[in-house]
Amino acid sequence: MAYSEKVLDHFQNPKNVGTLDKSRKTVGTGLVGAPECGDVMRLQIEVDPETQMITDAKFKTFGCGSAIASSSLATEWLKGKSIDEAVKIDNMDIVEELALPPVKIHCSVLAEDAIKSAIKDYKQKNGIAVAETAEAVH
């Protein structure tokens, strides 16, 4: 199975690889997946507490090319969004952008989970109600 150009580009030149200090109150961390399943994604956001805008996003992913591309794309989309906008990112947007084949849709689902999980973590740290994140459960 051939990968799309966009997946290859994100894979070869992943954007925003790295680690933010998870102990900081302004950082939200989402760690989803499991090594046994062949995918682990860690996605982190840094949020400006004044504006609730995401100022930085980083990821590290253990997984196939599509999982890495999905998380790389997610970090790009997150930067500059408010957390309320970010939570609305849908896995199918990622599927479409990266032209993922059906067998790789789970990679995009994982990225959506990681985004929601990171936002939830940030909200919990800052005492913001997290009721709506229930939708992150698949």
Partner: peptide, 26 residues
């Protein structure tokens, strides 16, 4: 390259016991 990208490699290098991590099965 892949280890630089891998969160579990980072955890391993930090000395985290991976068997104790609460993974979210998906």
């Amino acid at each position: 390259h892949m280890r630089d990208l891998s969160p579990i490699w980072e955890m391993y290098k930090e000395g985290v016991d991976l068997s104790t991590v609460q993974w979210s099965e998906h």
